[in-house]
Design a protein around this nucleic acid. Structure first.
Length: 581
RNA sequence: CGGGGCGUAGCGCAGCCCGGUAGCGCGCCUGGUUUGGGACCAGGAUGUCGUAGGUUCGAAUCCUAUCGCCCCGACCA
């Protein structure tokens, strides 16, 4: 492509409403332009990258046996009522009406549509397994769109849906997609990690997120450098840090801790380790009677070590809290504990509450906790001696770096990631309400076993940039770059020597099928080079009279700190060689 | 949804408090000089000051409403 025939529109300064690096760089490089909150135009430069990503996804999906189709952006509400998601999805689901006042939605995902196809078309087990996918525009009316294309409202997603005759076969389909995703993200040139993820209401163990590693990621990943264990922190299992409870050494003592409400403050004040303190978290589970009238909420006390933090997803798995819970309000806390928050603990309650100890807390001894009296804490607290054993022991906390790995091999490390892919076993959650069945070998109808597999195509742009950029701009992995090679002539329009050498190289690269951009715009060298770096084209050849007189040109990879002088006769071969490597 | 902030030229901003013919830098156009890291000189174009009302002789400026955008929060006792 000749730059003069293309559209390059860079910005020296990013608009002030851009908040993160990838968004600023995409705006500056002319890849996107904002049209509304969370809604972007994809400019020619950005679209080239999207197309490259899509091509790799298609190749690998097809290679894995998935079949492409295309489902509509606008879908009838009835389908979504069948699965109950019309009610459940909430405000994120964009609802619209047509001229006849009929309800429609703008798809945030396509389980309903694809299940409708399946129940209409799949009649026999002989047609299974099958995996349909499409690459389509999605809309989720995020309550707060931000981070540019990373959390936009309109975005492009590749979503695939597998249909199988039974769970064993569905597991095979799942594994195939898992393997395909590994290949896709590797081919895209990203540093990523497949992590175990929460399965939410669906349950089971088959759910993995593919996380692009980046310090600015919204997700936290726990992984074990010594093994292949990796999980979203929401899910990562926290083992007890104390193997067994030691015998009490200290007497239970009420100690004044004036004005010290937080564990950190108490530890500092008493000159003890934070890991000796226990924090109290009070939850409330709302109850109703048979007639749906509200009853007083059930109050729970969760105990965590002072240096640990609550994991709400885990709390949601505790029997009794699994329906729903909220944080107790101050009135409830005073009613049950006789004290305002800050000095709460498990001893001396006004009314009985359910006490759940985190696994680590359950094995602590001589610990410090609130005395349910303002400005007072207890030290030397011991289970069994000073208070009854907890009603329940559970894994309630987020893992922290240095925790033992749940697979028993080494310790966990923590890093940040950006979720770009998710594979999920669905079972019959959609086929059941939609009555999507096939005839089995026994001649009887059976529910389709499903799986779903998503890749955030447009989010990948942002994720790649977050992972790979410098102060000059984007550094694209080769496979995603809008152009693979930039040819930067110095004086293309005023030096026959330069023009000839440049045209020759360009023709040769094009013939070889290499995606080269010849910058023939006639910009001054400084502007041209700065823009090419901002755009992030990985390979660059600078050709000017100065070098050409010696028969030389300059090659520089976007990551190189300096250019390499190359014989003009060898440059094409050098690039071809680098690209095939 | 709660709190805060901002809407003035394509982008970045000033002007607003204290009402009186709308400015700066970059970018853009023309001509010239330049040409190996975001050039220089000269000339030029570009605004319903987010929108709608109101106050006033007069509103970017004051008042009201409204729309848009951004940030923080909506767990950590």
């Amino acid at each position: 492509m000749r730059a003069s025939q293309f559209f390059i529109s860079t910005l020296k300064e990013a608009p002030t409403d851009a908040d993160i690096t990838s968004q600023k760089l995409m705006l500056r490089a002319g890849m996107i332009r904002k049209l509304a909150a969370g809604i972007y135009n994809y400019m020619p430069m950005g679209l080239r990258t999207i197309r490259k990503i899509e091509a790799i996804i298609r190749e690998e999906m097809n290679a894995a046996g998935a079949i492409e189709l295309l489902m509509p952006v606008i879908q009838p509400a009835e389908l979504w009522m069948e699965t109950g998601r019309w009610q459940k999805y909430g405000a994120e689901l964009m609802r619209i009406k047509d001229r006849h006042d009929r309800d429609f939605i703008v798809q945030p995902t396509s389980e309903e549509a694809v299940t409708d196809i399946a129940r209409g078309e799949i009649k026999s087990y002989r047609q299974l397994p099958v995996n349909f996918y499409h690459i389509q525009t999605k809309f989720r009316d995020e309550r707060r769109p931000r981070f540019g294309v990373m959390r936009g409202r309109e975005f492009t997603m590749k979503d695939a849906y597998s249909f199988d005759r039974d769970e064993a076969s569905a597991a095979v389909s799942y594994d195939k997609m898992f393997a395909a995703y590994q290949k896709i993200f590797a081919r895209l040139g990203l540093t990523f990690r497949a992590v175990k993820a929460d399965t939410g209401a669906i349950g089971g163990s088959r759910s993995h997120e593919f996380q692009v590693i980046a310090d600015t990621g919204e997700d936290t990943i726990a992984y074990c450098p010594a093994s292949d264990y990796a999980a979203n922190i929401e899910l990562a299992e926290a083992l007890p840090l104390i193997a067994s409870r030691a015998s009490p050494m200290l007497e239970l003592t009420k100690t004044a801790t004036p004005g010290k409400a937080k564990c950190e403050e108490v530890a500092t004040f008493l000159n003890i380790a934070l890991s000796v303190t226990v924090k109290s978290i009070v939850l409330a589970a709302d109850k109703v009677d048979e007639k749906n009238n509200p009853l007083p909420a059930e109050i729970w006390l969760l105990l965590l070590r002072g240096d640990h933090e609550l994991n709400e997803i885990k709390a949601h798995k505790v029997p009794g809290l699994d329906k729903d819970f909220r944080f107790a309000n101050e009135a409830e806390i005073i009613e049950y504990f006789g004290c305002k928050p800050g000095y709460l603990g498990p001893i001396g309650l006004k009314k009985t509450v359910k006490i759940i100890a985190d696994r680590t807390v359950a094995n602590m001894s001589d610990f410090v906790s609130g005395a349910n009296e303002e400005d007072m804490h207890y030290t030397g607290m011991n289970w069994g001696r000073d208070l009854p054993e907890p009603d329940m022991i559970a894994d309630l906390r987020n893992v922290v770096a240095g925790d033992p790995s749940p697979d028993g091999q080494g310790t966990l490390a923590i890093q940040r990631g950006i979720e770009v892919g998710h594979v999920f076993y669905l079972g019959t959650v959609y086929s059941k309400p939609m009555n999507a069945t096939f005839l089995g070998e026994n001649g009887k109808p059976q529910l389709l076993e499903m799986g779903c597999y998503g890749i955030g195509v447009t989010r990948l742009l942002g994720a790649a940039i977050e992972q790979s950029h410098d102060e000059r701009g984007i550094i694209w992995p080769e496979a995603m770059a809008p152009f693979t090679v930039a040819i930067a002539p110095i004086g293309y329009d005023r030096s026959v020597m330069v023009k000839e050498a440049v045209d020759k190289l360009y023709a040769e690269l094009v013939t070889a099928g290499i995606d080269a951009l010849l910058d023939d715009r006639g910009e001054r060298p400084g502007v041209m080079l700065a823009e090419l770096e901002l755009i992030g084209i990985p390979h660059r050849v600078v050709i000017g009279e100065r070098g050409l007189k010696e028969g030389k040109v300059e090659y520089q990879h976007r990551r190189d700190s300096a250019a390499t002088v190359v014989d003009v006769n060898e440059i094409a071969a050098l690039i071809k060689n680098k690209l095939s490597a």
